[in-house]
Design a protein around this nucleic acid. Structure first.
Lengths: 233, 233
DNA sequence: TCGCACCGTTCGGGTTCCGTGAGGACGGGC
DNA sequence: GCCCGTCCTCACGGAACCCGAACGGTGCGA
């Protein structure tokens, strides 16, 4: 996948130099020579990285950052001629990810771009509905339904059963230690009362698993805790 | 939640200054004065941000970065006295996220730390996935999966097996002495019980290695200890 | 060639840990 | 007062796990 970079600088010579160097490295380049253009291009093109000069006409670099941060989390690298610490702080706190002062080494700039693009966060939104086999769990509505022949029936869970299930599902695929569950649900004074969990896990399995004696979704890790596996083992 | 920062610098005065300033800002501080200490502290404390000096004794800053990047994606900010572009490129490409040259403005450093922590909210557990051949090890989820024909199967590890594997993986590429492992897992009274390790290494190899009789990832250094090699020898 | 040190491997007992069922305590609704 | 759902205690059988002991293989020096 090719990385698209927006270069915004009011100095055409600088823009040209950056374009040549960066496109030679395989980046896809979009340019702008003032703040207004930069924001418009951003909306139209959705770049993966921003290379912003401060002190552009029309819209100041800081204002551009604010505008961008309203709707994108793509990395922003600010290039500026000024070296005072106050501006750096201001820019970084406005949402920029890095700040380089002119004159800069092109190799360093490239390395910093690589460092920024390396972190491409593929953050997955918290899924509210999880389906395992015949059973669907809706975390938002606090409801569980089971598909039966010719329809679906609601599964009734007690409040405590819900708490256990919810924690496990929210940590789907992850091991949840017994202590975590106990402290979360019964409080820190019951860290050692593992009997509670055995009970409720048995209940949940009875209600959710196709074959409770051979759990496919609510797995136990001996000596550690429990794990909810959406795919079924 | 409080952000934990590891400060690693061989200059005690610098460490003290940073500790005072950062802890005053509400950060939780862990310190180290050489590379070996830094990696050990990282394993024990799991900091959210790393503040590394280059040119430390025992283990160089670059080596520390390599060791850390084997298992953590937490942001690394490198502080160095040298200004040459080559070193910056080298460090950034090694996996560091930012590079600041001494002398630096404390305000700027703080702003850069804020910029880094803004990106990786630590309520999302940091991903730490290591892949070796057909097997992927997920330290955060405490899970091991093995690619098989037509899918992937979970590999079940016992708690003790996990402890051994975790220490080795977190020290990926580095030699871990037998004593280190024994003290860490079984306590200092079992420093000489090397039999334990032979047992669990055999178990791990059986479960992880393509050919357990010819280990490619879990190597033994005769007379010394063991070494986990991500690339496979 | 022998002996030794070191490492890998197997086996089985002892212990801890886990699932299950029965049943009591508590409290709210009627 | 009675019913009923929920939560918890307890005891038992079985499984998982840890660890001690012994055997085999390999490399090295005497």
């Amino acid at each position: 996948m090719v990385v698209k970079i927006l270069i915004a600088d009011d100095d055409p010579q600088m823009v040209r130099a950056l374009r040549v160097t960066l496109s030679a490295r395989g980046y896809d380049i979009v340019t702008a020579t003032n703040g207004r253009q930069a924001v418009d291009a951003a909306i139209a093109q959705h770049p993966d990285v921003y290379l912003l000069d401060l002190g552009m006409p029309e819209l100041d670099g800081l204002e551009v950052i604010h505008a961008l941060r309203g709707w994108t989390t793509a990395p922003i690298l600010v290039v500026s001629g000024r070296t005072d610490a106050f501006e750096k702080v201001e820019v970084l706190d406005a949402g920029a990810d890095d700040y380089v002062t002119k004159p800069f080494s092109m190799d360093e700039l490239l390395a910093r771009i690589r460092a920024l693009t390396r972190r491409s966060p593929h953050h997955e939104p918290q899924q509210a509905v999880v389906t395992i086999g015949d059973v669907t769990i809706d975390l938002a509505n606090r409801s569980v339904t089971r598909r039966t022949e010719g329809g679906s029936a609601a599964v009734r869970l007690t409040p405590t059963e819900w708490q256990v299930l919810e924690i496990l599902v929210r940590n789907a695929g992850r091991l949840v230690t017994r202590q975590n569950l106990l402290v979360e649900i019964w409080g820190s004074e019951h860290v050692t009362d593992t009997g509670y969990l055995r009970l409720y896990l048995a209940q949940l399995r009875k209600k959710l698993e196709p074959n409770p004696s051979e759990p496919r979704f609510l797995l136990t890790e001996s000596g550690m805790g429990y794990r909810f596996v959406p795919e079924g083992r």
